[in-house]
Design a protein around this nucleic acid. Structure first.
Lengths: 195, 195, 195, 195
DNA sequence: CATGAATGAGAGTTCATTCAT
DNA sequence: GATGAATGAACTCTCATTCAT
């Protein structure tokens, strides 16, 4: 039962995710999710009692998956510069993607809830990004690849630029060139020898 | 008549603004605005036919007011550095403000509409910011205050950081220190002699 | 004033007629007529207090105009057959006309009111038609053109067929051929020598 | 479930029919039907989404029932004249009925819709009447009961007279005598020996 | 556990009608 | 007389949520 239950829950979350990607958070109704998951109206309420609850679950799974992205496919002997370039490349791909992404829904969700919320994946994600970048920059400095910047501040700066680009990209069209230029700008301030 | 009509319209927009500040865009109903402006149900429809129309009008007035902010209270003999500092100070005030601001509503509005929208105040505001900053940086370089950076890229960079801070601040609490540190970081890259 | 007042009333009725032709009776609102006649909302109420009142006035003027149609352009020495043919020709034109006619509005009006109504233009028009046709048939019989039918019944029969065709034509498309065939059928029963 | 659902649907249609008989089509609101069927506001929308949809469904059931009328209670050895008389008797009953009939609603419905509508029960009913009458007249001619008229035209003629009487009866009061006289007139033209 | 019919609250919108100017 | 802004009633339609089966 617990087995089957769990399976059904996952099914609902999978379908709900599609709906959130499509419509953001605010305009999604329980009805939308019922229809998308082809489950009964009452059935859905057995597992979740509102869209916020569902969204948080979706987001949780999302974040778990995301963590991999960061660490994946980095060869043993990669330099800090290599990793940073890879990171920017990933980010660029994300930024230019037209669809299939939960960012708008996530923003809408946290706009709707207060800022005070204890659980805040948006914050967690940002903080995690800063932490990892700081570590990377420290490595780069240690290896002599990067200038001796304040790694904490610089990491924050990078994440803010990415955050800015993200909101821009969700709010209007942005050019690939803009992303390239800004990332190059960041690299230049950091790397002793730019690519 | 037109006089009085115009007055009433302004009254509605004023009340609607409060509602948008309070509740964002998506969850605001015509009824909310009717109640806030103490007007009759049908009365509102005499002036506006949906919340989007009202919001755009509110935003228009906002932007008009905003333009002043940039140009106001700059003394004749202010240096580029002075102006930049003033600009950061203004932005900081905005960023740390807890209430009374339309940014969440604006984001929600442009999330709800497509990215393709011709009229896009969010974009216009960003573009205007870049333009003005670029001009300022060029001046600073000419006067020898600033390093010879690519003014266009740097202006974009500043706006993106601000944009990033803005979304952070609307999405969780941010510390005054974060803003200070980041602005200092930007200044340091630009100004030959930091304060 | 009375002069000017009368003029304004006529103006309203003219505009209202167009609206009734366009939209029938039921769906016409005071607002429609206000807009069509470019008069003020309150102004309209000075002259009429609802659409039924307006429609009756429109209809009255219509009927007055219609009476002419019957008597118009009949030369002195026209035979009963000539006149009947002319009558059918007129009716055919009316029946096949696509637009510009009040019949639907009139039906809707009398559907909406009870059947008991004292004033009933639809009835008056039908009765007038019967009366005139009866007189014509009597003439035709007297002149030896027509068979000796019961003129009253036959006149009624003709008007009913026309009435039937009218409702058909307003309710679906009808072919010219149907009208021709039926009119020919009527003539054949009446005239000793068909055309 | 489907069972019960179907039952409820029938219940709604039954109540709706009463409303349409009472008020015609145009002035009937969803609310009227909600109240008549003592169902919840939202409940009605579970089954139908507007009055037109409901009306068409009512009409469909009506037409199905009507078909019987034509064919019912005709004994094996009935002559064409017998059947025609029976037909006229049925029609007369319909025409003189004061209440309980959908004709006004039906007219209003097809006035409101365009003439171009593919589905058109009014047309179908008329066409069916013509077809059946033509067949009957052919039989009568074959058996020597009727004159050798053009059965197609004559059938059309009968239906038009009935149509004319119908619209008259819905639009004002009509006398039983009028119906009798007109039907007698039709019979006289057709039957070699009138009753 | 699961279903989906049923409910009712509430948003949107349109108009007839009034009334101060 | 004339205007048109303002009101509020009435209707349409959609959903979250419940509950009998």
């Amino acid at each position: 039962m617990g087995e089957k239950s769990e399976q059904k829950k996952e099914h609902i979350l999978g379908c709900a995710r599609k709906v959130f990607v499509e419509k953001g958070f605010r305009s999604v109704t329980m009805k939308d999710i019922v229809e998308a998951s082809e489950i009964s109206r009452g059935g859905l309420y057995l597992y979740f009692s509102n869209t916020a609850e569902i969204f948080l679950e979706v987001l949780k799974r999302e974040t778990e998956a995301d963590d991999d992205v960061f660490s994946v496919s980095i060869s043993e002997d990669a330099t800090a510069t290599d990793i940073l370039l890879l990171f920017f490349k990933e980010q660029k791909k994300e930024l230019l993607r037209r669809r299939g992404d939960l960012s708008i829904a996530t923003y809408e969700f946290y706009f709707a809830r207060g800022r005070e919320e204890r659980e805040n994946h948006l914050r967690d994600q940002y903080d995690a990004g800063v932490r990892i970048l700081k570590h990377l920059i420290d490595q780069g400095i240690a290896s002599g690849e990067f200038y001796e910047v304040d790694s904490s501040v610089f990491a924050g700066n990078i994440m803010l630029v990415i955050e800015g680009l993200k909101i821009l990209s969700r709010t209007r069209r942005i050019s690939e060139k803009l992303v390239d230029t800004q990332f190059a700008h960041l690299l230049q301030q950091l790397c002793m020898e730019d690519e």
